Amino acid sequence: MTRQQATATGMVRPFDTTSRCGVSFLRAAPPEEGTVTLSPTLGVAAISVWPGIRTPEGLRIGTSSAEMLRIYPAYEAAEDAEATNARGYTKVPGNGNALYRIQTSNGKVTALTLQLRRQDCYE
């Protein structure tokens, strides 16, 4: 989705484009949550969720690492790390162009982002 398309939905606040990749927030999100990252070449590249939001499969911030692995057995940690303290990725069922970026700490999911599989704004 382009910047114009995202803005036209009425769901995002104005984008801050002072850096290479623009950043906005979803209007329905609590303050400073629900980050939307805008790639200058790809459009909307990532959307971060906040506590209470679930994936269609039931994953949410606060889910145990064990339950996360049950829901997404193909999860792969980005570093040589255990799934209980890691940043990793799994495919979004039904969307070959997207990944869930899942951060865990102390055996719980602490951050969840829907992002393009190939994006150019972070990491």
Rank of each mutant, 00 (worst) to 15 (best):
R13H: 13
D16N: 12
T17S: 13
T17R: 11
T18K: 10
T18N: 09
R20W: 11
R20M: 13
C21F: 06
G22R: 06
G22L: 10
V23N: 14
S24M: 09
F25V: 14
L26D: 06
A28R: 09
A29K: 00
P30L: 07
P30H: 06
P31F: 06
E32W: 14
E33I: 03
E33F: 01
G34R: 01
G34F: 03
G34E: 00
T35N: 10
V36C: 11
S39Q: 04
S39N: 06
P40M: 02
P40H: 03
P40N: 00
T41P: 09
T41R: 15
G43H: 09
G43N: 05
V44R: 00
A45C: 07
A46M: 05
I47N: 04
I47F: 10
I47S: 01
S48H: 12
V49L: 14
V49T: 15
W50K: 00
W50A: 13
W50I: 06
W50V: 08
P51R: 05
P51M: 04
G52W: 01
I53M: 14
R54G: 06
T55F: 01
T55Y: 02
T55L: 02
T55S: 01
E57C: 04
L59T: 02
R60W: 12
R60D: 08
S64Y: 00
S65K: 10
E67T: 13
M68R: 04
M68F: 04
R70W: 11
Y72H: 03
Y72S: 03
P73G: 00
P73L: 01
A74L: 09
A74Y: 14
Y75G: 07
E76P: 05
A77L: 05
A77E: 08
A77S: 14
A78T: 09
A78D: 11
A78V: 10
A81G: 05
E82A: 14
E82F: 14
E82C: 12
E82S: 13
E82I: 10
E82V: 12
A83V: 11
T84S: 12
N85F: 15
N85A: 14
A86G: 02
R87E: 04
R87G: 06
R87L: 08
R87A: 09
G88W: 04
G88I: 00
Y89T: 03
K91W: 12
V92Q: 11
G94S: 03
N95D: 15
N95G: 05
G96I: 10
G96R: 10
G96W: 08
N97I: 07
N97R: 07
A98R: 13
L99G: 02
Y100H: 13
Y100F: 15
R101H: 12
R101W: 08
I102W: 02
I102L: 01
Q103P: 07
T104E: 03
G107H: 14
